[in-house]
Computed example of a mutant assay.
Amino acid sequence: MATIGLDKLFYSKITEDDNGNETYATPQVLAKAMTADLSVELNEATLYADDGAAEVVKEFKSGTLSLGVDDIGAPVASDLTGSTIDTNGVVISASEDGGDPVAVGFRAKKSNGKYRYYWLYRVKFGIPATNLATKGDSITFSTPTIEGTIMRRNKLDAFGKHPWKAEVTEGTEGVDQSVIDGWYDEVYEPVGELNLSPIHLPSGDVTM
């Protein structure tokens, strides 16, 4: 089922132990979301045998997240890009800046009124792009765009893997409502045993 909306854009700062394993802080509002474009790059290898492809392996390599937002406040800009805020409250961007990775969460509304929820576990953002235009005969809004690289996290999940995304659709059979209700209380952590039973999505539902 198609999505028709985007909101509740949050981020969570990451701290790492000596082995690089992530601990996530309490999520905070990033900005009001306008657009979110997510693309994924895969590592692919093909084993040929008997004059044909015998095995094909495709694994997540990295991804790109491009966010269009209404505005980026000074504290958020500092957290995402590594810029500093001086004693006058002015954001100072330097060539040496480099923000630490954060987790990013948001939700997309579907045409049936339910929501699809996301957490991206490790995203490293670059400097926001700003588009400005002089005022003319009509009003044109100029809003920033910020792009980040999506990476798998270092910490293993309950299944011994390195997740890069968590995704759940509200109202899907087998989804506990408490998971939906607490989605922004903390970054979602895979728990329990892997559910191997098929989850039946409504016709036409495609995950991002």
Rank of each mutant, 00 (worst) to 15 (best):
K110E: 15
Y115P: 08
P27Q: 02
Q177T: 14
T3A: 04
V179H: 04
G113W: 06
K155H: 11
V29E: 06
T64A: 10
E41V: 15
N21L: 09
D79M: 01
I92H: 09
E59K: 04
D181F: 10
E186N: 02
G63A: 08
S78F: 01
G98H: 12
T149K: 04
S95I: 12
F60P: 05
S78V: 02
T169P: 01
V168Y: 02
G204Y: 05
N195E: 15
A49E: 13
T87Y: 06
E170N: 07
S138Y: 05
Y118G: 10
E167T: 11
W183F: 14
P190F: 12
A33I: 14
L6Y: 07
M34A: 08
D37G: 14
Y117Q: 06
G160M: 13
P75V: 04
K13W: 00
I14E: 01
K124N: 11
M34G: 11
G192N: 02
K124P: 07
P27V: 05
F141E: 13
L132H: 13
V191L: 13
V102I: 11
G171H: 09
P198F: 12
D18F: 08
E167N: 03
D50I: 04
V56F: 07
G160S: 13
V90R: 02
I199V: 15
E59C: 00
V179M: 09
G113I: 11
N195A: 14
M208Y: 04
I92M: 10
K165T: 14
T87W: 05
N112E: 14
S66I: 00
E96N: 12
I139Y: 11
E193C: 00
A74R: 06
V91D: 09
K32Q: 11
E193F: 01
E59A: 08
G73P: 00
D79W: 00
P27C: 04
G82A: 13
V175E: 05
E167S: 13
L156H: 11
V102W: 05
A94L: 10
A133S: 15
N43G: 08
D71F: 13
D181N: 12
A77M: 13
P27S: 03
A158Y: 14
K114C: 06
V187H: 01
Y115V: 05
A158F: 13
E147F: 00
M1K: 05
E147Q: 10
N21Y: 13
L9N: 04
A158C: 15
V175D: 05
N112D: 15
A31E: 07
P163L: 02
D185H: 01
E189A: 12
V57C: 02
D79L: 01
T130M: 04
V90N: 02
L9Y: 03
S197W: 04
